[in-house]
Design a protein around this nucleic acid. Structure first.
Lengths: 222, 222
DNA sequence: CAATTATTTTAAGCTAATCTTAAGACTAGA
DNA sequence: TCTAGTCTTAAGATTAGCTTAAAATAATTG
């Protein structure tokens, strides 16, 4: 998971960065709004942590400009501006949470986790056609018979099924399943799709993983 | 939108209920944890607002029991228990937000809206007449029915629709869709226009792609 | 901690779908 | 009616995705 922190006080910025890196997040820093927005727009972060008062472009302005392009990446404000009006404004403009300074690192961390928490959670059961998936035990069944998948195979399959009915672009997949956030074009995805189709014994007629040429794949109820 | 408030102090409960109803939410109240959990599990609410300290079953217990069954309905804590440890525990157990009393109604309202905000809208939608285009997933629909287009077909169609109402010259098209920047005169464009008309089943009378003789094409609202 | 085994990634040839070309049929306007 | 411009078709060129095997990593075990 990759985060961007926009914060001009080096003390706070580095404190957060270090703490989050210990939790194995990748963290980028921007010490002003302009580079912050720039990074945010060009780097597929999973979450943005914004201070309100930063040079060149305020956190609020970043939010507005960023939300015009991207409405899903969560934004958490972390700021000394603590009036009611400011909180409301930020949330209205697209922030997902608003935490007032001074803050406890543990609370920030937990609030970040909330935002990044997958909508379908552990131990839930996923199913599509003859496939059943137990997210808790990471088991996959086809017609009640268990299919042994590797980690990545499992991750890719559940990703596709959790997004069933909507196209997963290669960029989405490489970002969300491989956690790679830059231009990337090897055949990994193809190899794994191939492995899934083989292990799940999907023939042309019952292949619920459809390829969308030039775009990606889509898992569909048949 | 339907909300459930679990809160035993009638003053706060009614204050919230009234305020939220004015914002045209439907609101149910429970004054103890047991009926609260019961209602929550049997009534497809869009969001739960929980106090921590309520009789019979605490807000935290409700959260744990509820999350075992339902992992998507957002839960907001609204409580006087305000230590770091309590906040973290609630968020860890599945709460989506945690607001400390005393609170401002406007902030609660805004935080509720954040939770209910649709998460999908990453994809820009284009439309013209009966055609809908999802730029993110590169899907095209005519009267809600998906039409499968190839890459170039898709690019050309979106180009025309993005420039709807103004003429796209052949030079423009070859430059912007094919990325060819010199004099070029084959029939490619014609071939693709033809393919679009065919796949979108455009007859003379509903063909929003009009030919401008000697110049190019124009997509027009009919 | 080296050896073994399993997983993930890269790379390359192959296949099938898409893109382009070109040639003949058609059409609108002079 | 004639002609320039457009439409249509089908065959050849190109490219994206499939498949396989082997190389690089990571995990496990004696």
């Amino acid at each position: 998971m990759r985060l961007l922190i926009v914060e001009d006080e080096p003390g706070i910025a580095n404190f957060l960065k270090q703490g989050l890196e210990e939790e194995s997040y990748e963290v980028d820093l921007a010490d002003n709004g302009k580079t912050g927005l720039d990074l945010a727009l060009n780097n597929n972060y999973d979450l943005l942590l914004l201070d309100w008062i930063v040079p060149e472009l305020s956190g609020l302005e970043i939010t507005i400009k960023f939300r015009a392009q991207n409405t899903i990446t969560p934004i958490i404000f972390l700021t000394a501006k603590d009036t009611l009006q400011e909180t409301i404004t930020a949330l209205k403009q697209g922030a997902n949470d608003y935490v007032k300074k001074p803050f406890h690192f543990e609370e920030i961390l937990e609030r970040i986790k909330v935002q990044l928490r997958p909508k379908t959670a552990k131990n839930e059961l996923l199913m599509l056609n003859s496939i059943h998936i137990n997210l808790g035990s990471r088991q996959v069944f086809k017609n009640k018979k268990e299919i042994i998948l590797t980690q990545k195979e499992f991750d890719l399959l559940t990703y596709l099924i959790q997004n069933q009915g909507s196209i997963c672009t290669r960029i989405d997949i490489i970002k969300d399943v491989w956690d790679i956030h830059f231009e990337y074009n090897t055949g990994v995805i193809d190899v794994y799709i191939n492995a899934l189709r083989k292990k799940l014994n999907l023939q042309k007629e019952d292949d619920f993983i459809q390829t969308v040429r030039g775009v990606g794949y889509i898992a569909k109820e048949l």
